[in-house]
C-alpha cells in the first residue's frame, strides 16, 4: 500500500518534529556532558592546569572504547542500559540516551582539541595575573576557543541528524523511522525522496546556523 499524500504530509511533519526534538535534546545534553569531559581531559593532561595521569588515562581510554563502535551497534549494545535509564527501548526518548552517550564523547574530543589549539601564552598570562586553574578554564580557555568550538558543535549537530535517522530504523521514531517503515519496507520511492529531502534540509539549516553563530563569535 503506497502512501496517500493527501493524508501523509502530517506524518512527515510529525516525524520531522520528532527528529528535531531528538537532535536538539541530544545536542544540549551532549554539549554539557562533552564540555565537562573535554575540559577534564584537557585539564588533566601532562603539563595541563590540573594534571592527573590517572583521570586522563581513564577518560582517554573510555573515549577510545566508545568512539570506534558503529552507532547502530552502540544502540543495540546500550539497549539494556537504555531500558534501565529511560524505562523503554523504543521511541524517541529511548533513542536520545544512546545518542547522548556517543555524542558526549565525540563532543569531548572536539572540546579537547580546540582547547589545545589555544595559545599557551594566553594561559601563562592569566596565570601571571593570579588566576587559578578552574577560572582559567572557564574564563580564558572556553571563550578563546569558542569560535572553533561552535563549528565543532555544528559538525556534531549534523552527525546527530544522521544518528537520529539510524536510531529511527531500530524503533527510535523520527524521519528515519518514517523512511524505513513507509519508504523502504513498502518500496515507496516517493516517501524515500521526501524523507531524504527533509534530512538534507535539516542538515543545511543546521550548518547555516552553525556558520552564522561561529562567525558572530569570531567577528569575521
Amino acid at each position: 500500500m503506497k502512501a496517500d499524500w493527501s493524508t501523509f504530509w502530517p506524518k512527515v511533519l510529525d516525524a520531522t518534529g520528532e527528529t528535531v526534538y531528538m537532535v536538539l535534546i541530544t545536542l544540549a545534553l551532549s554539549t554539557v556532558g562533552g564540555l565537562a569531559v573535554g575540559l577534564t581531559l584537557y585539564a588533566t593532561r601532562k603539563g595541563g592546569v590540573l594534571p592527573s595521569r590517572f583521570v586522563h588515562a581513564v577518560l582517554g581510554t573510555l573515549i577510545n572504547i566508545i568512539r570506534p563502535v558503529p552507532f547502530i551497534i552502540a544502540i543495540v549494545a546500550l539497549a539494556p542500559v537504555t531500558r534501565g535509564v529511560v524505562g523503554t527501548m523504543i521511541g524517541t526518548n529511548a533513542a536520545i540516551f544512546p545518542m547522548t552517550v556517543v555524542a558526549t564523547f565525540g563532543v569531548a574530543r572536539i572540546v579537547e582539541s580546540n582547547l589545545l589549539a589555544v595559545e599557551p601564552g594566553v594561559i601563562e598570562a592569566a596565570r601571571s595575573m593570579g588566576a587559578g586553574p578552574l577560572r582559567i578554564l572557564l574564563t580564558v580557555l572556553v571563550p578563546e576557543a569558542l569560535g572553533p568550538l561552535v563549528l565543532g558543535l555544528t559538525f556534531m549537530l549534523v552527525a546527530l541528524i544522521d544518528f537520529s535517522a539510524v536510531a529511527g530504523t531500530v524503533g527510535g521514531g523520527g524521519v528515519g523511522n518514517l523512511a524505513m517503515t513507509y519508504g523502504y519496507l513498502r518500496f515507496d520511492t516517493s516517501v524515500m525522496v521526501v524523507t531524504v529531502l527533509v534530512l538534507i534540509a535539516l542538515v543545511q539549516s543546521a550548518q547555516l546556523l552553525g556558520n552564522l553563530v561561529s562567525r558572530k563569535v569570531l567577528r569575521r
Binding site: G121, E124, R127, M129
Partner: peptide, 23 residues
C-alpha cells in the same frame, strides 16, 4: 595557591603580547 595573590602585585608582559582575543 598562596602564590596567586602575590602574582597580582607583579605585572608581566610578553613578546607575543598574549592578549585575550575574545575580549
Amino acid at each position: 595557591r598562596r602564590l596567586r595573590p602575590l602574582r597580582r602585585e607583579i605585572g608581566m608582559i610578553f613578546q607575543q603580547f598574549n592578549l585575550f582575543r575574545s575580549r
